[in-house]
Design a protein around this nucleic acid. Sequence first.
RNA 1: GCCCCUGUGGCGGAAUUGGUAGACGCGGCAGACUCAAAAUCUGUUGCUGGCAACAGCGUGCUGGUUCGAGUCCGGCCAGGGGCACCA
Length: 852
Amino acid sequence: MSRYPFRATEEKWQRIWDERRSFEVTVDPAKPKYYVLEMFPYPSGRIHMGHVRNYTMGDVVARAKRAQGFNVLHPMGWDAFGLPAENAAMQKRVHPGVWTYANIAEMRSQFQQMGLALDWSREFATCDVDYYRHEQAMFLDMLERGLVYRKESWVNWDPVDQTVLANEQVIDGKGWRSGAEVERRKLNQWFFKITAFADELLGAIDKLERWPDKVRLMQTNWLGRSEGALVRFPLAGRAGSLEVFTTRPDTLWGASFMAIAPDHPLAQELARENPELAGFIDTCLKLGTSEEALERAEKLGFDTGLCCRHPLGATEDLPVYVANFVLMGYGTGAIFGCPAHDQRDLEFARKYDRPVVPVVLPADADPAAFRIDDEAYVGDGVIFNSGFLDGLDVPAAKARIIDHLEAEELGTRQVTWRLRDWGVSRQRYWGCPIPVIYAEDGEIVPVPKDELPVRLPDDVDFTSPGNPLDRHPAWKHVTLPDGRKGVRETDTFDTFVESSWYFARFCSADYDDGPFDRAAVDYWLPVDQYIGGVEHAVLHLLYSRFFTRAMSACGHLDLDEPFAGLFTQGMVTHQTYRAPDGQWLQPDEVKKVGDGWTTLDGREVVPGRVEKMSKSKRNTVDPTTIIEAYGADTARLFMLSDSPPERDLEWTDEGIVGAWRYLNRLWRLVEERRADLPAGGKGGETPTGEAAVGLRRLVHRSIAAVTTEIERLHFNKAVALVRELSNAIEAFSPTTAEDRAVLREAIETLVQLIGPMLPHLAEELWQRLGHRTLLADTAWPVADPAWLTADNVTLALQVNGKRRGEIMVPAGSDEAHVREQALADAAVIRAMAGKPPRRVIVVPDRIVNVVV
RNA sequence: GCCCCUGUGGCGGAAUUGGUAGACGCGGCAGACUCAAAAUCUGUUGCUGGCAACAGCGUGCUGGUUCGAGUCCGGCCAGGGGCACCA
């Protein structure tokens, strides 16, 4: 028997789908739509296994939904702006655009080899001027509506990339891409007013029912809403006051000091006349660039000599410290310290010898004896030592004190967010130009819409660091319509801007008169199933949710949430290997010897952990190599097998070989039996033979179960179910015409069920079974409920909860009958050891438990 | 430090609302085919004892609820992730 000729088969069907434009779609209000989208790739040069896994999952959903009668939109494009292109330009002396489009061509052909059911007619790259021109227009719309503004702010400056990083892009004090130590600089920046939607973005999380709980939680924490009060503490002996935000106004009577951030205006002012303080502030700010250092640093304060009066006059005056643990970027940059009920404040108070007065009494504690040692009490309890709040519980005390503060004009109720506005200016060439001109007199002039797009100039030089747009001799200098001279904004957008609306552009990718055709987005959006890596759980998804609202506010859309369903898949991992000198070794440089590994020429290899495939650890496996050796279907099957899709998948050579073996089994299964099958149409008659009835039941159970598991994206279970069905088909030997009809139904169903996962093989087998129409155009099988239930069921028999035997009874047998049979069972009688049954529990069609 | 998730054979993992733990696959073992190998096929495979029938033990540890717990509850341990001086 021949092996499955995967290469010719895959080429053949890819050509046929392409010629027939099988997966190109148009708006069709008569059909239900389904929009499947995988997070679009950055064109880095070659696809990696993570892409294979991501796009395979989406493809299974797309093909299954298509077979189920949906009008399926499944597009592909490129997230094509970004720093790697500029790095390549500097290293290889190639223009970022040339490099990017060459990468796209390479990756497109790799994706095409995978046999994905994509509508390639909608393909675009975000660096296409026909894409980013619309982004510029929308920026102007948002500017007009006050959703964009400019402010000077401290930024994280990446000295290697010569660019600003968002706070979110700074990881452990280092740039998330370059890894360079981040510095602080003050620059004028463009910001999107994402905080204007904070309430809405938080409230809508509840409605994202088809999102993983984990992602919803991460977004909730990122937004970081906290309720509390703004309280004014008058300064003693000088004018002015300190404003403090607190979530614990109920502990106000426990205050024993004040602390302000090193970059608080008051601290800065005092530092001008106090070199010692200035030095302390310097130390704090230096520490502030590295979060790791901050964490390890002990809590330090500098006594300014100033004091605040307690706003309720409850205690002595409170000394004001500058403290390294207070953040200017959150709340007001000032706090009151209540050591008894905040661990951080307690540590500070112990160090600087401030009083620790408990004001919340835990239940059952004795007010006279209650003391705080080295652990602050943060739990619930009854307020004491607190004047008119005494006796209230914590929530009641919060409400009461805020009412009081507001009545006395000492403070106000306040909600504070962790979320900050989205700074989008980047000092880079390879991004979307921000369409603004600075006139010579300082006025900021938006580029008129009819002068869009502001194109990136092609003649740029990358021989020195920094932004080539900034030192371009001609591009940046313009004359305004009124004759004034001006310079263009030389910053470009953060590339998260492009990925915040690409899903909408796919709905009408060629549309010229705006970002998208309204009818098309109204039909296709929201995305029904979005699939991508969990690393985008916060930023990309939050920005897209904001952008969708902002686009709606500008009248482009009528939609809040872009992604109705979200799935975050796990990474593809692989064992790592190192030489004794610590050098990473590639998987193809080592071989297994007994329980360990050696290099090919027999030298020692130290096996490392299983980690995400990455170039730096040299543990990658190239998808193209695999596709050439085993075909796309084998690679796809492996990506879907065994591991639950949300978890990491460990690449193993045994696994890919196992998948290849299964393809050949399917091939032989059909090739060996198809000559004996009756022609056309599925057997309509009811089979009578025991084996045939059993197979027919399994076929219908398999249809129901596989359909459900694909719907739930449990692809590993769908694969297991399909294998179970093919095992049963292999074991089935037809002897009658009736048997052969059942066998044909079983084989055809099997081919249909594997269709979304192994599209090329399935299409080929479908044709070989005599079909003239494409499997891709064939409706999904439907399970007949009549065949989903069995006549007989096996009941487990337990004595005192321990399984002792089993009996076969007709399904739905009545309890008395089952009970009688169970008590008559030899194994049960033996286990009862002569004792009388005290109780018999019968769970219909499941289990009998005899208690003695 | 806070929050969340995950712990099941040699391995990846199955197991509806609490109801036969280990589906499906990988690997192993034995056998068939072959001059031989590869490929393929058949059988077997949680652990311990036993020739066997069978018995005992088994879902990180520990206690509980229940006729019955991988599943529910309490405490602990380990691994992973998120957030972080967030007031």
